[in-house]
Nucleic acid binder design. Sequence first.
DNA 1: GAGTGTCAGTGGCTCAGCCAGTAGCCCGAA
DNA 2: TTCGGGCTACTGGCTGAGCCACTGACACTC
Lengths: 250, 250
Amino acid sequence: MRAGHRAGRPSTESLRAPDRRRLYEQLAARLLDYVEVTGLGVGDRLPSERDLAAALQVSRASVRQATVALEVRGTLEVRHGDGIYLSSLPNDSGRLMELMTQRHRLPAILEAREALETQLAALAAARRTEADIAAMDSALEAMAADIDADGLGEEGDRLFHEAVTRTARSALLADFMTALAVPISETRRSSLGEPGRPPRSLNAHRRILEAIRRGDAPGARQAMRRHVKMVADIGLLRWSAVEPESDRSG
Amino acid sequence: MRAGHRAGRPSTESLRAPDRRRLYEQLAARLLDYVEVTGLGVGDRLPSERDLAAALQVSRASVRQATVALEVRGTLEVRHGDGIYLSSLPNDSGRLMELMTQRHRLPAILEAREALETQLAALAAARRTEADIAAMDSALEAMAADIDADGLGEEGDRLFHEAVTRTARSALLADFMTALAVPISETRRSSLGEPGRPPRSLNAHRRILEAIRRGDAPGARQAMRRHVKMVADIGLLRWSAVEPESDRSG
DNA sequence: GAGTGTCAGTGGCTCAGCCAGTAGCCCGAA
DNA sequence: TTCGGGCTACTGGCTGAGCCACTGACACTC
């Protein structure tokens, strides 16, 4: 864009797109570089805002925007009066913002499903009302009708699990289930696509509902665990398990 | 400063956490409310920074931090010279953001902890390495040393649970634990503040570790469940449970 | 109709100032 | 000697003013 032109040659430099990234984005990237280069670990402290601003030759307000961005991403923690700390390494950080779009490996999704849904089933057994049970019944009827009509029963499956979640009345668990809605719908499709799986899933749902109906929290937990493990038994996962475990270093 | 309250009767009022959220977090939440209330759709334009700053009675720089946060989350797109646009509806990602900033009721947090941490313990038992066990051991030594010095063992407690999470090698579950890091640290403080609780927690941790060490997944699950239920037994929760259930409609 | 220039409004960044919070150190009282 | 309180230096938090870069709309000219 400016000086540094080589005289004589037709300049390709001027054809290079200018860096249109916001300054905070550039600075956030520089901070991540700094973390990597210095080998900082979780809990370590970064230089002060004033020092960073001086070193990077920008205003403190701009450094602040960059730290906000990295705070939202879970990488940094900014403590008032104390300093800026690394709260998770950028590589393995829980980037919750990407949760909705990122492809997680199927085993991780199924592990999370097991954790959440067994607890939801137990809480549903403890907290169900007549209306809750009716909703779960209705979902299973819809699933059965779909399966009788040679469908996979996906909609009924979804309705049933949603009804269990509502019955449990546990806000955070419901939030996590919402966050996992897209990957869960994928595991649902894969599972119900297994030969002979729809009626087996329907039967598993019925066992869960019966435990919930009689208020048997451990029984509901157990029935749901069996169901989720059955869901896990799909061809795609069997293929996936053959892959080398490349993220063992976690 | 909180520890001083143990000298006399703990006032229930003084145990209520003040709103320590950064201004940008509060403003980001306000912007999401605005989007919801006005029914804005993807591609719609928000008011200008200057108008927002005036309406919200804050500086433009503070509005800017909030828009950066929402930009990182993919909710907003900020175009130089043009305006601030909604780039995706905040429904699901908005709920995840609230997980990191909003005060949830304690029972919901503890229910989620039970779901996640029992599964993490079981997976840790299945997947632990010698290095994992050493890290958990080290955390418990730190906790024990702190308790011997009349501390509450909070740091060791945190290190232990983090080590279990790392040992489990389940990305989504780790993500969810990260999302709950702030409320969990509060339940930790409340629990360890109970009279005589630190050594009991330490013993519970040791039982968890022994089950993990011998690769006993159901045993680890059970030990963790007992531990989380013990954590749930705190004065603040007993007080909280007396409140009318105002969010039964879930 | 196409191209160019102008303008008003927009966001982008800087700077200086002042306040709140934190950790460490020192001094005085018990 | 120990403990607690006060002070200090440093930290982040936020504000407001200023000026510049960018954008889209509109008007004008060819």
